[in-house]
Simulated assay, not measured.
Amino acid sequence: MKFLAASLALALGAPVPTIAAELPVAATYAMPETETWDMTSAAGRTYRIFVSRPSGEAPEGGFPVLYILDGNAMFAGFAEARRIQGFGGRDLDKMIVVGIGHPGDQVYDPRRMEDFTAPVTSPALKQLYAKYPSGGRDAFRDFLLGELKPAIAKRYAVHPVRQSLYGHSLGGLFALHLFYSHPGAFDTIVAASPSIWWDDQAILTEEAAWRTRAEKDGKAARRTRMLLIAGEFETEGSIAQDSAALAARLAPLSSAGLRSEFLLLDGETHVTVPHRSITATMRAVMRWP
Rank of each mutant, 00 (worst) to 15 (best):
V16S: 15
L178F: 06
G62M: 01
E60F: 06
R162P: 04
E80P: 00
D115V: 08
W197I: 05
G171F: 08
P110G: 11
R211M: 13
A209M: 11
T235R: 10
K219S: 15
A256E: 15
A76T: 14
R82W: 05
V285E: 04
L264Q: 00
M39D: 14
T117E: 12
A245V: 01
A43P: 08
V120C: 13
I68E: 02
L69M: 05
P119C: 10
W288A: 15
S55P: 03
R141S: 14
R111H: 13
Q241S: 05
L250C: 03
R283V: 12
A209C: 07
F143K: 08
L263K: 00
P103D: 10
S238P: 00
S195F: 02
A26F: 12
D109R: 04
L173Q: 05
Y129S: 12
W197E: 01
W210T: 07
Q201G: 08
K131T: 14
R223D: 07
Y166C: 09
R276G: 15
D109N: 14
L228V: 01
A244E: 05
H102N: 09
L23I: 05
S55T: 12
P289Q: 10
S254I: 02
K94W: 05
W288F: 09
M113W: 13
F78Y: 15
G77H: 03
M282D: 06
G184P: 06
K149H: 03
F140R: 01
A202P: 10
F3Q: 12
M282F: 04
H102S: 11
L145I: 14
T279P: 05
V120W: 09
G88W: 06
G231V: 01
A251P: 03
M95V: 15
P32A: 03
F262Y: 10
L145W: 01
Q127N: 03
M95H: 06
F75V: 08
A5P: 07
V120D: 11
A247G: 15
D38Y: 02
R82D: 12
A76P: 07
K154S: 11
P110V: 09
F174S: 10
D115S: 10
Y47Q: 11
P183H: 11
P252S: 04
G99V: 07
T272M: 13
V98G: 07
M74C: 15
P183R: 05
P119Y: 06
S41F: 01
V16D: 15
W210V: 09
D93M: 01
P194L: 00
P160V: 09
F75R: 11
A11S: 07
S193L: 00
A118S: 12
E147S: 12
P54R: 02
Q163G: 08
F179V: 00
E22L: 13
M74V: 15
G146M: 08
P150Y: 06
A175L: 02
L69H: 00
